[in-house]
């Protein structure tokens, strides 16, 4: 490796480590939202309870979309690492479509809940639910914007170390979003749906 390459490599590693620390603090933020939800879950104020408002197939669809997007994001990161532009575009765009479909389903769900009088202002339970799942949805939105920016970078210049190092961080971010969703369907949706 030349001296320039080594320097770029060190820099990329430093950035990946810094970003890893951010992700860990993000994970702690989510764990506190989970703890809040667990405490608030019975605080329904005689309003809708968790057994009444969740949809099995919507949850399954959201889970399938997000898990598949973790795979396609990984394939995109491999393509960018190997500087294969066409494949990178293809996988990033597939990932964006999956993420967008996830968001559409989630926004529909939120809108439906608000319409039936189960908005975040109804009870402590619903406040905690909307905060936890909404924060996750905000992360998905940020990831989607980040992917769009990455597409612009890919379109404008050949794949270099800067784009590769940014992709590494985006991939880490996206996998964290996927891991948080495991917690959400396991701790929020499925226990609510189980009769």
């Amino acid at each position: 490796m030349s001296e320039v390459d080594t320097k770029a490599h060190d820099e990329a590693e430093e950035k990946a480590y810094g970003f890893w620390l951010f992700l860990m603090s993000d994970a702690i933020l989510f764990s506190l939202l989970f703890a809040t939800y667990a405490i608030m879950v019975t605080a329904t104020d005689n309003g809708p309870a968790r057994t009444e408002i969740f949809g099995y197939w919507r949850t399954a669809a959201n889970t399938a979309l997000l898990l598949s997007s973790s795979l396609t994001m990984g394939l995109a990161s491999i393509a960018i690492c190997e500087a294969r532009k066409a494949a990178a575009f293809q996988w990033i765009i597939v990932t964006m479509i999956l993420a967008l479909a996830f968001l559409v389903l989630e926004i529909q769900e939120f809108a439906g809940l608000v319409a039936q009088g189960a908005g975040p202002d109804r009870s402590g339970f619903l406040s905690a639910y909307f905060t936890l799942v909404g924060t996750h949805g905000a992360h998905v939105t940020v990831g989607l914007i980040w992917m769009a920016v990455l597409c612009l970078h890919l379109a404008m210049a050949p794949i270099g170390p800067a784009v590769q190092s940014a992709t590494e961080r985006l991939t880490m971010f996206w996998h964290l979003v996927g891991i948080v969703w495991i917690g959400i369907y396991s701790m929020v949706y499925l226990p609510g749906l189980y009769q």
């Binding site: 890893w20 620390l21 860990m24 994970a27 702690i28 764990s31 506190l32 989970f34 703890a35 809040t36 667990a38 405490i39």
Partner: peptide, 18 residues
């Protein structure tokens, strides 16, 4: 180390809160 520390904090904070 950061991952392990995060795990410890999560257990303390979730467990303590509950």
């Amino acid at each position: 180390l950061a991952l392990g520390f995060t795990g410890v904090l999560m257990v303390l904070m979730i467990g303590g809160t509950l």
